[in-house]
Nucleic acid binder design. Sequence first.
DNA 1: TCAACCAATAAAATCGATTTTGTTGATCGA
DNA 2: TCGATCAACAAAATCGATTTTATTGGTTGA
Lengths: 238, 238
Amino acid sequence: MADAARQTMQSLTEGVYLSLRRDLLSCKIKPGEKLKINEIALRLGVNASGIREALSRLTSEGLVAMEVQRGFRAAPVSITDLRDLTKTRIQIETLCFETALAHGDVDWEAHIVSAFHKLSHLPEFERINGQDCVNDVWMKAHGNFHQALVSACDSAWLMKMRSSLYVQSERYRQLSVPFRLEAERAPYIKAQEDEHRILMEAALKRDLATITDILDAHFGRTAQFVEALASDIAFLSE
Amino acid sequence: MADAARQTMQSLTEGVYLSLRRDLLSCKIKPGEKLKINEIALRLGVNASGIREALSRLTSEGLVAMEVQRGFRAAPVSITDLRDLTKTRIQIETLCFETALAHGDVDWEAHIVSAFHKLSHLPEFERINGQDCVNDVWMKAHGNFHQALVSACDSAWLMKMRSSLYVQSERYRQLSVPFRLEAERAPYIKAQEDEHRILMEAALKRDLATITDILDAHFGRTAQFVEALASDIAFLSE
DNA sequence: TCAACCAATAAAATCGATTTTGTTGATCGA
DNA sequence: TCGATCAACAAAATCGATTTTATTGGTTGA
């Protein structure tokens, strides 16, 4: 890791930060899990101070929780939080759409069409040695598509808010992945894909009303899915 | 400092964080100013790793900017950013008000009335050895009043967004303080106080339309004030 | 039996020193 | 005169070790 970071990353701490962030978002590090500084330092082959620095940043981002003199743990998740998060996401994303629709030009439209095309040719899931995982490439493309839709929004602050909420919700999405059964999955995927197309078309037509409706359903889906699994997910409280 | 922190704070790093945050918000540390780790460590009498940790947190909060291998500096300010910030603040705060008005009960109303009363009996400015400063107590009371208005909002995420935007705008407000002349000040203060009263009354009457109008004017004031001073403030770019 | 105490351990917080990287300013040759 | 080169310096990044603080598990005495 130290070597990998020295080559690809600009600094070791940056590498630690990205590495932890990835594991947190994919729920490889489970919500509520203790994050022992020395253990991580040993595992990644870097000094403890870099770990502290990375964890502090992640704390500000809401992915890690800190208790003074008691260290760090992965930020907890809860149904209450997920509901609030989803509702807030819809509100903020709607604000982004309002300006994006007003400012969007033909480049923006092209950007959306392109991102949709890429997304629609990727499978959401893949099997890695028997385990069901979200396809990383799909995840990225999915993020890019939603980003493209609002990319004509000219408010850096609004986009920053949007981005931090998006990250949070990705974490919840990952949470539900191992519990999604093959059989139950198909209709969800179908609905999702349909919604992506409708979102694209509504954006091109500057149809905010339709967009708001679909956002409700689209963002709500993950929330409902996770809620339905609440009893199966050990660390998910009310 | 080390001793002060050991007594009042839970940890040295926490103390460093709060100390730097205060100086950043009051613009005692000027936007764009270099933040040398060793210098700060020496000045506050603590180790460099704690400084790095605090600065990393402040970076995530948008009060500090970091460049890899080039260290930290106070986050820059610009008129463009201020305009965006103000607009976004109004949007988010409006969302907060919507739920606050819907959920607010008599306790909430009492909270507002109380916060207003305290605020209205404090002077905004004070003179500290010949220098014009914003009165710290007023600042706190002002923050509390605005917080009280939306305190019945039940969305933790929305309130978190609101809070980080509020902090940012406080920084801009401080920026304009040394340039506010005694003579020009009175009408502004009067207008502000009137707006506070109108906000309170509109909140009690659940009158969202009036609130939105006043927010526009109230938040816009600082922005206009700073913009008018743009040429006088060295580090304020377009 | 059980709460209060204490020692041993584990972990967090902090430190001082070292290594790495960027910056500055002087020197050289064209 | 000007750009390139490089040494000396300053600052950031990293490290290994120490100090401080929580936690745990066992012992004592009521």
